[in-house]
Amino acid sequence: MCGRFALLAKTDLAREFFSLAEIDDLTERYNIAPTQPIVIVVASERQEKGSNLPERKAMLVRWGFMPGWVKDPREFPLLINARAETAIGKASFKAAMRHRRILVPATGFFEWRRPPEKGAKSQAYFIRPKKGEIVAFAGLMETWSSADGSEVDTGAILTTAANNDIARIHDRMPVVIRPEDFSRWLDCKTQEPRDVLDLMKPIEDGFFEAIPVSDRVNKVANMGPEILEPVEEVIAAPAPKNDKGADAPPSSGQLSLF
């Protein structure tokens, strides 16, 4: 899965990388967590109308997908990821796969290797491209409307089976869309879900590098560059316990838009 990521790219780089018609100034974000606003890229109206210009637009959505048919979001699970293998047929994502495919700009994502030994401490990694400062994850969006008429744009990141590089850490990874495939992925007018199945596969080995980092990333309140500082890779140390005696999971500290 992908439960935390970072976006540190400069605004000009993002504008050029995604061929954006416009984008607000980006703020460096080192520890983006579920339910927070995230930047996404969608096809512009000009592109949708058949213009040859590859201009696109950026917008903000809540990270946590909410299908339009949900009546009470408090009774619906937080969908931050969608499995690429099943998104086409799954009720929650079927409409978005057909009509609302997006790109999610990122500098890298965080993942945890959880050792099989009970009580052993998990090792956090920052996984980033070996070349370049920005990458595009495949995503889906949906606009959820409440009974009072208010609307919230929501999104999820598509994941696929991990490649060999990432499999030693976790069995899933985000789907990466290359720049030459941006137009095809975002084109929901002529490209049906079955036409983009070939894009929803693991990126080749060697694309990412995994850097061990401290458990500072576990807390959403930690939002500075220090969470990316490399550490010595340690797996065997005992994990801290919570009041109930279970392994303490990463603190969410997440906000809610509902």
Rank of each mutant, 00 (worst) to 15 (best):
C2L: 10
G3P: 06
R4Y: 13
A6P: 03
L7D: 13
L8D: 12
L8C: 08
E16H: 08
E28F: 03
I32A: 05
P37K: 07
V39R: 05
I40F: 00
I40W: 00
I40P: 00
A43P: 05
S44W: 02
S44V: 02
S44A: 03
S44E: 03
E45I: 00
K49I: 10
G50Y: 04
N52S: 15
P54R: 10
A58V: 01
M59L: 14
L60E: 08
V61W: 05
R62V: 10
F65D: 07
P67D: 04
V70Q: 07
D72R: 11
P73N: 01
R74A: 13
E75N: 14
L78G: 06
I80H: 04
N81K: 02
R83M: 06
R83T: 07
E85M: 09
K90V: 03
S92K: 02
H99W: 08
I102Q: 01
V104W: 05
T107Q: 01
G108I: 06
G108V: 06
F109N: 04
F110C: 12
P115V: 02
P116W: 00
A120V: 00
A120Y: 00
K121L: 06
S122L: 02
A124N: 13
A124P: 12
I127N: 01
R128A: 15
R128W: 05
P129E: 08
K130I: 14
K131I: 15
F137I: 10
G139K: 00
L140E: 14
E142Q: 12
W144T: 06
E151F: 12
T154I: 09
I157S: 11
T159N: 01
T160F: 07
I166E: 14
I166F: 13
D171Y: 13
R178G: 05
R178C: 01
E180I: 06
D181E: 11
D181T: 07
D181A: 13
W185I: 04
L186Y: 01
D187C: 00
C188I: 10
Q191P: 03
Q191W: 00
L197M: 11
I203S: 15
E204T: 08
G206F: 14
P212F: 01
S214L: 10
R216M: 15
K219T: 06
V220P: 09
N222W: 03
N222Y: 07
G224S: 15
P225D: 15
L228Q: 05
P230S: 10
P230I: 11
V231S: 14
E232V: 15
E232I: 14
P240Y: 05
K241F: 10
N242R: 08
N242A: 09
G245I: 04
D247L: 11
D247W: 05
G253F: 08
L255K: 11
L255Y: 08
S256P: 11
L257G: 07
